[in-house]
Design a protein around this nucleic acid. Structure first.
Lengths: 199, 199
DNA sequence: CCCGGATGTAAGCAGCTGCTTACAACGGTA
DNA sequence: TACCGTTGTAAGCAGCTGCTTACATCCGGG
């Protein structure tokens, strides 16, 4: 055995980067399932199979963990999706119970964590800004930003009713059917004239 | 002074019903501002100017307090409003920063408290059921319940973006303008044909 | 008057929270 | 081999939570 660097393919018993990654994945899932405040540092460390002191060694604080989760989850996603596909993409990812894979769960984290004026709100606000600015150009109307907010509100509301409240028939409805209803209706929102309209 | 019953108009130093009422009002406001978990029994008792032990004497538990708040706030309201006015009424009450009066804040309580799978969810679910069944008849389509859920999702989402996330321009937009956009768009949701549509 | 229930008060309980500290074990380097 | 920074571990800290208990104080009916 050469005294050179360790072969990267071999699994090491002490591996800081692997520990960091396991903490990030456990935090992403638990934040999505229970919200920021509901996911305790002990539960995150336990799901990662890691001593909780390491969480603070690698991320400084619970808030620091959230920041990294959101940064490499949602922010990258929204920046790499063309605006005209963004809404449908986000809606479909909200409608399909993600298969526990290495997917983006930042919207679930968002809607389960913004409920209170706690420290998570500031970190998550940036994620919302990205969505809004991407959506704002879709309507030619001068109040495009307001309409983008309304569209995002619907998106979050649907996620709230489906994954949190879980009430039928929305929770069990076919994603395609919900998409058809929502996208068809939203078309009228983008097209509605700003000045005057019906009631 | 006759030895008869105490004149009800006179303020008594020890008044159980007044204490109960003050606790209920303080709880309603704090639940609406911070959510169920965020509002501590100590903060509720302090705002009511009451010893916190009395909270447990009169309501048994924090959850019992929430149940009474929701019951005499939201449930009465939705039952006494005609269905065709319910959505606009709820939307407007969500859009106007209620003037600290003795108003109904149950929707704020709802959206700030359903974020997690905690004990509050069960109590609040009944409130959602009332709204859904009232709204379900508005569309003649066979999937009226699904459309009612989608409308409620938009309502809650708008409240979420406006009172919790507080992002512009939605947070500062004129209630009338938001109402016009939302109600105009929702008209197309009620009217959309169920079978096949665009996209 | 005086007793007893109703009302209000102060203190404390066990359990949980985010976070820190002191220390052990590993493993590459000299 | 001897060393020393990196990685992992166990225990504990102060503060908060919902809730309970033991005890004052009021006040109307006998």
């Amino acid at each position: 055995m050469e005294p050179g660097s360790v072969p990267p393919s071999e699994e090491r018993r002490r591996d800081a980067s692997a520990t960091r990654r396991r903490l990030l994945e456990a935090a992403r899932d638990l934040f999505a399932e229970r919200g920021y405040e509901g996911a305790t540092v002990r539960s995150i460390a336990a799901r990662a199979g890691v001593n909780q002191a390491l969480l603070f060694r690698y991320f400084g604080s619970k808030r620091g963990l959230l920041t990294e989760v959101v940064a490499l989850g949602g922010l990258e996603q929204v920046r790499s999706t063309p605006p005209e596909e963004l809404f449908e993409t986000a809606l479909r990812s909200m409608l399909t119970r993600s298969a526990e894979g290495t997917e983006d769960r930042s919207l679930e984290v968002y809607l389960r964590s913004v409920g209170r004026g706690d420290e998570a709100a500031g970190t998550l606000r940036d994620l919302g800004e990205e969505y809004q600015s991407a959506l704002a150009g879709l309507s030619g109307a001068p109040d495009g930003a307001l309409r983008a907010d309304l569209a995002m509100a619907w998106l979050l509301g649907i996620g709230l009713m489906r994954t949190v409240v879980a009430r039928e028939p929305l929770a069990g409805a076919e994603p395609d059917e919900v998409c058809r209803l929502v996208l068809g209706t939203l078309g009228h929102l983008w097209a509605a004239e700003p000045g005057d309209g019906e009631v």
